[in-house]
Amino acid sequence: MRHWLWAVASLVISVELAAAGFDYPLQPQQIATDTFVLEGKTEDFSKDNGGFIVNSGYIVTQDGVVVIDTGASRRFGEQQRALIEKTTGKKVIRVYITHHHPDHFLGNQAFSELPIYALPATTQGVQREGEMFSSNMYRLIGDWMRDTSVVAPNQVAQVGKETLGGHELEVLAFKGHTQGDLAIFDHTTGVLFAGDLVFNNRAATTPHAEIIDWLASLEQLLKLPFKVLVPGHGKITQDAEPIAQTRAYLVWLQTILQQAAANGLDMNEVMATPIPADFKAVALAQSELRRSVAHLYPALETEQLKPAKQAE
């Protein structure tokens, strides 16, 4: 009995110590030659996951390591960099930020002396909204954010191919999820880092979305001869299924919002729209639908109103 109590007590203590250390459970997943992903959970931000809900990747070239996205906090960026440099024995030489959402760039502090590349719209987005994102993240994930501050990208990513340490990397510029969505296609390995243009079994988020542009970007992604697809959120695949799923979800979303506006529904009524069986496996579909209604519905409902007769 006493031994049992001790076991419980020490377990409790060790759990608390681990929590106090704020260690992200980083497990590098090799997805191709020289190429790894730290796969986040398909959850919303919480004090349990510390914002590790996003896929960040790295390519180990002969000249050093290229990092794609730095996670949601200073702690994440630091732990990511330490892990990479320890396990590969190479230095990180540059960073790409796919877009300006907080789970993708708030780890930049850990890389601030390095070139951090992004599309101009991304850097502008960080400068405009970074502080607001950061304070909201303190609210959502608490102490995981300690000492995190906003570091904007310091280099402009040029569209096109560049060979770096034996990897032919192509930077592609899209929009739709945000105004600046960068994707990286490694022609040497066939890996496509799609950023948040692609979600896999996790509902797409739309705070800065233009669905028409987004769908056009997905068409372009489908034309690339990739062998491995890294979505911004969700499992890595060797097929284009996550692109098809993201496209189907966005088309459905656009359709129900337009129909609701045409039928005179109020926001809460639209938010209660049932999620079709096709998207049963898609995590957070109902809560992301509520968010998307807040983002996208005001413009659609306004289109359905007519000016009243009024004395000038």
């Binding site: 039928n263 005179g264 306004t302 359905q304 109103l305 007519k306 000016p307 009243a308 009024q310």
Partner: peptide, 10 residues
């Protein structure tokens, strides 16, 4: 003070 509106059958 500008007003816009519409009416729908439910």
């Amino acid at each position: 003070g500008k007003v816009s509106a519409n009416v729908w059958q439910r």
